[in-house]
Write a protein that binds this DNA or RNA. Structure first.
Lengths: 209, 209, 209, 209
DNA sequence: GATGAATGAGTTTTCATTCAT
DNA sequence: GATGAATGAAAACTCATTCAT
């Protein structure tokens, strides 16, 4: 086991880093990159500014670290979800469930995620955007594969380009998450994945075609 | 006619205002709120800073004005689209087409839109968000109505809450716009609205119920 | 006349600039580059910090401007001095007098000059050093020429390389200025240039060869 | 003998101190006081910052210690030089040689010396300047004495105040050192002290007087 | 006794906003 | 009424110094 090998020093470092990133996530997600000062992050995380700068070489570095960390966490969970089951429909159900779990656990993260992926700090991201975008695209390709395979296996009808189907289910789940974020009571993220899934599984128009 | 009543003075004012907002849209959409200075907006719009402040009481006010203006334009176009045709399917087609037209004509606006609705300046908007959100919700309700009526008329199967259907088609079209924004060549916003529409019309699973 | 052409605006600008450089000279010369804050320069010159930054793009730029300005003033005065008279000895007398005049008028400048040319901020100067150094060398060459011509005309004995003679008289006058700076009463810069000049004109050792 | 009395402990301390000062000299002489951090001195000398502070109560103290140490070394060498020989001319030759030896051996020291005596850190030195200056003046007085005695003995002509003669020969040798520092190849500090000495010994003007 | 992580005061610089011309 | 020069508050970041281990 590697984890046992970490010295007390190292473990403390890691814990401190986590504290800082956690404070930063809270602040960035509610106020946005430019409305958060390093002083605030320092105060919120209960470290001195200088200490913050020991861990992150500047504000942007702190921000990027946060983005990468969250993106990794997110990417990993979703990838695992669509790689678990054998059945394509089950894969999609797992994916919808996982997305809900990862995000519902942390409203700050979802707010941050939307601020990041769509718009918001698209200016700050300029430089490292590509890396994240690539990682995201890798996932989209995998998701598209699920549809492609489903179509090949005749589980799905061939109604649209698998990539667009992937993008669509992504955007629909995001929309549900967004609704939940705004009014958790009124619009809970559905327990039953089929509530979302049916929207693209069962066609609206029976006679239509 | 009301427009004839406007004095030359008034009309000039309006034109100046439009120049300013246009310059602001260009800058904000490409660089983001915090990376644009009033000096830049002044230079770009070829007015003096002081003149800018005659029209907008501060930077935030300029920004908000822009948001409201764009939102209005957008809202109006989409509302008109779904109120035109009689047939529900045709309404949806019109909606998809209109969305493409409004946005495709102006990449700046779409970039700005995403920065606004999803994330980005959700911080700046804090206060007046509600107003925009309300307007947006009015539209969502109307869009939901299209689905509800379609279901009542048995044009659509009753596969999900009409409101969620509205949110879904909104998010799918957004996703397509986003793809187009990133790579206009590779992912053109479809000429034929059915390419998008089919995703929720024709269900993926035939045998699945 | 060109000066008459300057608009009131331009003249005011120039005056402001001079005020700032004057305050900066005072501060830099007494406290040294690193011990002076922009806030101090602003306060001393009675402008806002922002105004300071309108004239000089950063602290280093302010500093460099000061160095160049002073160097120019100094260089010009000395060059004129050694180019005025025909007689070599008279040239040297004029040079010694001019040096005294330029500096005696302004203790701040001499302090600043020593801090700059010898040592001090040799770190800050790194980049533009060469330019100043070159200008200085041009002068040294001209001064060496005075000695060379004097030797050719048999006014001077050929006791050393003219360049070294130039460097020597430069350093001796500097030494006198330095003494004056430290104790103006006890060590006034001599009215009669021959007091300095004799040191290298009249040899110490008659019999010695 | 006093040195034998030093305990191993004491000797080690002394050695450590020397290591620190040596690292400090290297850094200060190349980068200047304000561009050197205590962290750097610690790293360069391979001690911990805390240890540095055991030896010097703060950065300024470290700097001053360095100045005093170097000044002592310098002062001692030069004093010894002018006290060795009996003949005044030989004393001056020894002085010129010694100056070359002390400095040529250590470019860092000369750079540091110029940064200190002329300009640079005259700001940092403010407080303790006087002490160094006094020591330096003691030396200047002794050097002046050499001239005074030479004049009394009729070895030298009485062409100027002995103190000014001392200052002059000091500044000329400095100028040569400075030239050497800038371009060691082109301007070597002369092996033969007479090359410098002649400048004040042999008068330039034969017929003059 | 040695260490170096943690601290936070202090510095440079930007930019929204005002107001005299 | 238009202008844009002047303002200064506020932000990012550095580094001398302390002190718990």
């Amino acid at each position: 086991m590697q984890k046992k090998k970490l010295s007390r020093r190292k473990r403390e470092k890691l814990w401190q880093r986590r504290e800082m990133l956690s404070a930063a996530l809270d602040l960035f997600s509610t106020k946005g990159y430019h409305n958060v000062t390093m002083r605030e992050v320092a105060k919120e995380s209960e470290f001195a500014i200088g200490t913050l700068y020991k861990f992150f070489k500047n504000k942007e570095d702190l921000y990027k670290s946060l983005v990468f960390e969250q993106a990794d966490r997110f990417h990993e969970a979703l990838t695992k979800a669509i790689e678990g089951a054998d059945d394509e429909i089950e894969k999609l159900r797992d994916y919808i469930r996982a997305k809900g779990e990862v995000f519902s656990a942390n409203a700050a993260m979802i707010r941050f995620y939307f601020a990041e992926t769509r718009g918001a700090s698209f200016n700050i991201m300029a430089g490292f955007n590509s890396e994240i975008r690539e990682q995201y695209d890798v996932f989209l390709q995998k998701l598209a594969m699920v549809f492609e395979n489903g179509i090949k296996k005749k589980i799905f009808k061939n109604i649209a380009d698998p990539y667009y189907l992937a993008v669509s289910i992504e955007s629909i789940t995001n929309a549900f998450l967004f609704l939940w974020l705004e009014a958790p009571e009124r619009h809970p993220y559905p327990e039953d994945p089929d509530i979302i899934l049916n929207i693209i599984l069962k066609g609206l128009s029976e006679p239509y075609t």
